[in-house]
Design a protein around this nucleic acid. Structure first.
Lengths: 335, 335
DNA sequence: TTGAAAGCGCTAACAG
DNA sequence: CTGTTAGCGCTTTCAA
């Protein structure tokens, strides 16, 4: 049997209440008593039982993070930021990998409702906003990364997709391109939608008439990007640059170009999004948009903890962090 | 206030014990009563409180995983394997990122001793075996990935470093190399040690006299690999191949060779370990040893759960999984 | 400044 | 097959 608070109390000649006070830094304890208790705690190697503490205090000091795929470097970086900030504030992190399944995502929400965790972070959730709002209405603490949810109690952290997409187009135009294709991710992902919007606005700003044939869906995957380029190449449409809504698809573009004998950036400029580590190692080095993934994770955690501890949502509730366009070889016009 | 078991019981006209039995699939409940209770549970949207359940049942259905760096693809893949298997068996996963700090690692062990989790998995731990054995002696459930710990209650899953390192040397010899340098990781990492051992044995098998100048430490990092090559190049020693104890260091080798004007594999063959995703995208494609990371994660979880639920360590206690040498461009002799 | 005592919400004997 | 009851180990009033 493990040693418990009452054992410590007995040995130190005090009541359990006093031991509890010592453990929780309650100041109303004579420093003499405190020392005595601490000494016994160390002698006995006493560890407060977490379950009992959780039950009694109605807190678990734990946050859950739900991601579509832990092994994807984007999510791994966000998780890292979350774990580090949580650790710094004495919180634990439970992770859930949904494998892109909304059902699994829904199931992980139980961690909140059955009080396994005090708060929950969804990274680019698949579930409809209503589901999240319903929980937030019931006062569960929720944060979302990479998406905006319109609810006064839901914390959101993301980068401005529209803005950086316009920057990408701007950059491409500066490099002399006017025929720019766009590879979108799955249609229902907010990122897809917003990056497309930014692309369109970018074209408009430069008075480039938009052509629907320039757009193909690559599902955010390498294979999808590859196939999208193949479809693009089969069409009677000309283009000298491709803006892929993420790096994975850009990787597929490289693959397709290799097979098609198209040189990058000579015959085709390519820009991606995510600053996946691979983008820096592939030849030619891929131009991409870098988002502050660690920082995004750390930011939601801070907001969540504020909310959990003060009872009020953090202010501001929404944080839009800056991204950065990294111009590398794949989009630089060769002299 | 949340709705609790007693509310369900009252509304269904039964006792809390019966509700509990229904929830835990205890067969001794009339199916009629069961239906009635289930109906009320749904009507009320009742969710059993996890903290109370944990306290009473002395189980948390949670496992902790401690890794040196969540964002490193090797660890991310192992975690994925762990989370997936755990989810399949209804367990939750808490992650801890030690950032290579033994102090932090030690601190995470409290998750076990304070009963936050039922079992703990350490991926390539930094702590000395004694520390782990001490916990195992106290009947805490522990698993280790990527290292062997000699204790009858500690579960271990890893690949045979010596064996695959010998295979790497064998492959290099077959490609015509007899002067093979070795880049080790930090000296105290078991992987470093064993890969070095395999390298030496491989040389011996091929009657290649070993030369200490061929060995340099690259600390498992890209930068370390780069610097190691620079030191190697400054020495009056000749070599036509490098076996880097991981892919990160191999990346550093590429960098150094680029600066030194050494062509791969023409003038220098390179082989790494880990099958980091980048290895397939870099030019020339890096030959590397692939370990079944997901499977390794899944395997420990199964062993741990067996131990937790039966009270006996899984049999066998140690699982050595097969790795595979992937021969790609960086080590293939050009005709 | 400290102690006594009442639960937090659930499970599992033990009865019936 | 179902109900009664006694805690799991801790925190927190309330009283002293």
């Amino acid at each position: 049997m493990d040693i418990k608070m009452i054992d410590v109390a007995a040995r130190a000649g005090v009541s359990p209440a006093t031991v509890s006070r010592v453990l929780n830094n309650n100041s109303l304890v004579a420093s003499e008593t405190k020392d005595k208790v601490m000494k016994v705690i160390h002698e006995l190697g006493y560890q407060p039982n977490a379950a009992a503490k959780n039950l009694r205090s109605q807190k678990t000091m734990t946050i859950a993070v739900i991601v579509p795929a832990i092994n994807n470097s984007y999510y791994a970086e966000v998780i890292k930021g979350i774990e580090n900030q949580a650790y710094a504030q004495k919180y634990k992190v439970i992770i859930g990998d949904t494998a892109n399944s909304p059902e699994k995502e829904l199931e992980f929400l139980n961690l909140l409702t059955n009080k396994t965790v005090d708060g929950l972070i969804l990274v680019t959730p698949l579930l409809p906003d209503e589901e999240l709002c319903r929980l937030a209405d019931m006062d569960y603490v929720i944060g979302v990364v990479g998406r905006h949810v319109e609810h006064e109690k839901i914390h959101c952290v993301y980068t401005d997709n529209v803005k950086f997409s316009k920057e990408v187009v701007q950059h491409l135009v500066e490099q002399g391109h006017r025929e720019i294709a766009f590879l979108s991710g799955y249609a229902d992902a907010i990122d897809s939608y917003e990056r497309l919007e930014g692309y369109l606005k970018g074209l408009r700003e430069h008075h480039i008439p938009f052509r629907p044939e320039w757009i193909e869906n690559g599902n955010f995957s390498e294979r999808g990007g590859y196939e999208a380029v193949m479809r693009l190449a089969a069409k009677p449409v000309h283009f000298t640059a491709i803006y892929a809504a993420n790096d994975e698809m850009a990787l597929g573009v490289y693959q397709a170009c290799a097979e098609l004998g198209i040189s990058i950036p000579g015959q085709l400029a390519v820009v991606g999004v995510d600053n996946n580590r691979i983008s820096r190692y592939i030849t030619p080095k891929l131009s991409t948009v870098s988002q502050p993934k660690n920082k995004m994770g750390g930011a939601v955690v801070q907001m969540l903890i504020h909310h959990m501890e003060s009872g009020e949502p953090a202010e501001p509730r929404v944080r839009i962090l800056e991204s950065e366009l990294l111009v590398r070889e794949s989009s630089r016009t060769v002299e």
